[in-house]
Design a protein around this nucleic acid. Structure first.
Lengths: 153, 153
DNA sequence: TTGAATGCAAAGTTTTTGCAAAAGC
DNA sequence: GCTTTTGCAAAAACTTTGCATTCAA
């Protein structure tokens, strides 16, 4: 290991990553750790470009291609989720182990609020069963205008 | 009007399109009608490229740029919905006036099944209210393995 | 006749890839 | 030492745009 991970609240993340790398016979690297550190620090829906900009100031300053490669690695490891919010660029977010959440997205200010609803989750499972699907994951996005933007208008 | 629309089951679609064009002071055209005819005929989640390929054989044979322009026009008219199923290219589908539906997507064969569930819709409205959002639309995609692919495995 | 639509090719965006050099194990 | 990773630039993939021409009203 080239750099000690510092995001302690994401111990599980680093651990699962390490497992994945070991199983896939991949190596660790400074750049990757720097990128992931920053990604976890941002705690949001981040695009490769966003992440790259934030890293510009770091001492490591990895290339954009490496940022892409790292995010794809995390995706393959099942640690992050990639989403397309219809503005061209893909955004990534940490895939928390148990607690799934969905999104409320403001069409005006693009703010994203996360929520969770057990009833909806249960209904989804019901529907999947009805159609004979083995459900792996899902994505629910509600689009509208947030309270703040409603007030402005 | 250069070409008579032939998709009679989509009379409402052509009507609303005509209204939109009139209001926006836009013109009709042969190519546009050919493209839309084909789009409606396909009745599926279609990418611009898909649609373009299908049109290759038609007598009109419009350019790819025109296909894009037409789909964007329909989007602006609120007649179609654009989605990103995470494979790079955007797909479009008819936005039916009242009946909203969601998607069950097979991760193996990429088959898409549409479903509708009033309870989920109601819960979504509830959640939006709780957060003070004025809901405009939503998107629910369930990913998993379809019965057919489950049998194969 | 006037403004919109088209086709083509060129440009724009976002993401991936090839390759030589560097780094991890 | 052998293999993976990196950085850069080039390429790829998807979509938009500029411009001269054609077409609709």
């Amino acid at each position: 290991m080239s750099t000690k991970p510092k995001s302690n609240s994401y111990a599980w993340f680093w651990e699962r990553l390490e497992q994945y790398l070991a199983k896939a016979q991949l190596k660790q690297s400074k750049q990757r750790n720097v990128i992931i550190e920053e990604f976890l620090k941002l705690e949001a829906h981040v695009s490769a470009e966003d992440l790259y900009s934030h890293l510009k100031s770091s001492d490591q300053n990895p290339g954009l291609a490496t940022v892409y490669r790292t995010l794809n690695l995390l995706k393959e490891a099942g640690l992050v989720d990639q989403k397309q919010f219809s503005d061209g660029k893909a955004v990534f977010e940490v895939l928390h182990p148990d607690s799934h959440h969905d999104h409320l997205i403001c069409l005006e200010c693009h703010q994203v609020i996360e929520f969770h609803n057990d009833q909806i989750e249960a209904l989804q499972e019901e529907i999947a069963q009805k159609y004979g699907f083995a459900l792996k994951h899902h994505s629910l996005d509600l689009f509208g205008t947030c309270p703040h933007c409603l007030k402005k208008a």
